[in-house]
Amino acid sequence: MNKDMKILIVDDFATMRRIIKNLLRDLGFNNTHEADDGLTAIPMLNAGNYDFLVTDWNMPGMTGFDLLKHVRADPDLKDLPILMVTAESKREQIVAAAQAGVNGYIVKPFTAAVLKEKIEKIFERIQK
């Protein structure tokens, strides 16, 4: 796994973005960027060669679920690995996210170990 990969963190709460950013830094990922919802994330994704997207679900403007569907529908972005980190815990939603093409799903509250495990799993799978 490339530790220099460019990561976009999307969450409407600055505190949660900071927590995820810190956890990623502890895992050796320093090239992280932030957006506060889907609408601000899209132009950033379009502009700059991101390798990984970590997004919340419940956000004003554009939700993470809509962002997921948008990315999968965009020919330039469709292969971007996406990890959802969210408080949404309905089975129906998890199934919907999986069907929409999410690569990993973490329910909040979560631990550093879970984040590490899911990221490793996602990139292990992609490299195969």
Binding site: N58, E88, K90, E92, Q93, F110
Partner: peptide, 22 residues
């Protein structure tokens, strides 16, 4: 549409439609 509802505060009462953890 999948409408987000935020954290489930009473997962025990909700039964099978929500997951209780990772």
């Amino acid at each position: 549409k999948q409408i987000p509802e935020g954290p489930v505060v009473n997962a025990e009462k909700r039964g099978v439609d929500v997951v209780s953890g990772q």
